[in-house]
Simulated scan of single mutants.
Amino acid sequence: MTISIITATYNAGKTLESAILSVINQTYPHIEFIVVDGKSSDETVDIINQYRPFIHQFVSEPDKGIYDALNKGIQMSTGDIVGFLHADDLFDDDTTIETMVGALKNNNADVIYGDLEYVQVNDPTKVIRYWQSKSFKPSLLKMGWMPPHPTLFIKRQIYNEIGSFNLNYKIAADYDFILRLFSNSKYRTTYTPMVITRMRVGGTSNKNIKNILLKTKEDIRALRKNKAGNIFSVIWKNISKLPQFIYNNRSPK
């Protein structure tokens, strides 16, 4: 079973090398590593070229943002399973992918996901927020539930069946995709209770008030389009994040 890992990057030279190392140090041997760069003007391309022997596919060209870059990566991928590791992120452990593949096989699943840690930009061992997910059931969607998108591993054929990221959403295309995915009862999902990804804080959706308002508006539009909920779902979605800031102090990596 080959896993395609897609890294989208744009002027992320400060963190990209650690993301690349996080992929190439994985113990699982069957990884197709794809890097999609948005024509960076910093040292990004130099770093990619340094590790080019470990990168199976690479493109550097202007794009329409991260969702466009991820769509390109999905189209380029040839693996059985597709997962993402953004340029600011790290897999929690060198055995992460191996463990996820084993859980995917053992549960005969089409989709697998786990937990996510938000970490400090300059010190990814220091956790700011811990997103502990849970096993899926359809009623959760109306409560605004979603799994941590960076932890999702999905069979590539699913993208052919339900489509990839809708570029009409500037910030919430991942939520729209998750609603399409988890609203479809034909796909077998499984949750593995372990941290998959460590994400550096500073994401686009929470950068400022303007983006927060846009995210809320797009969340509501995605819920209505997918007939999965309403404005109250978004309210519960935001309330449910509060416990994530009460960290359980897992031993640092």
Rank of each mutant, 00 (worst) to 15 (best):
I5T: 05
T7Q: 00
T9G: 00
Y10H: 14
N11Q: 09
A12Q: 12
K14R: 13
L16Q: 01
S22E: 02
S22H: 01
V23T: 02
I24Q: 01
I24K: 04
I24H: 01
Y28T: 03
Y28L: 04
V36D: 03
D37C: 02
G38P: 03
G38W: 02
K39T: 01
D42I: 06
D42K: 07
D42G: 06
T44H: 00
V45E: 03
I48D: 00
I48W: 03
F54N: 05
I55M: 00
V59T: 10
D63Q: 13
K64M: 14
Y67C: 06
D68K: 02
N71F: 02
T78N: 11
G79Y: 02
D80L: 12
I81E: 07
I81S: 13
V82W: 00
V82G: 01
G83Q: 02
F84L: 15
H86I: 07
A87R: 05
A87L: 06
D88P: 14
D88H: 14
D89C: 11
D89F: 06
I97K: 02
E98S: 12
M100P: 05
G102Y: 10
A103Y: 12
N106K: 11
N108F: 10
D110N: 13
D110A: 07
Y113V: 11
V119I: 07
Q120D: 14
D123F: 01
P124V: 03
T125D: 09
T125M: 03
W131D: 14
K134P: 08
S135W: 09
S135Q: 14
K137G: 08
K137A: 10
S139R: 15
K142V: 05
P147C: 01
P147K: 00
H149G: 05
R156G: 02
I158N: 03
Y159S: 01
N160G: 09
I162V: 08
I162Q: 05
G163P: 06
F165R: 05
N166V: 09
N168F: 04
I171D: 08
D176M: 14
F177T: 13
L181A: 14
L181R: 13
S183T: 12
N184V: 15
K186R: 11
R188I: 15
T189K: 14
T192R: 08
P193L: 04
T197D: 04
R198S: 05
R198T: 04
R200H: 07
V201G: 12
T204D: 15
N206P: 13
I209S: 10
I209A: 10
N211V: 06
L213M: 07
T216C: 04
I220R: 04
R221G: 04
R224I: 15
K227M: 11
A228M: 14
S233Y: 07
I235E: 06
S240I: 01
S240P: 04
K241T: 15
L242C: 05
L242R: 12
P243V: 04
Q244D: 15
Q244S: 12
I246A: 08
Y247G: 13
N248S: 10
N248A: 09
N249T: 05
K253Q: 08
K253P: 09
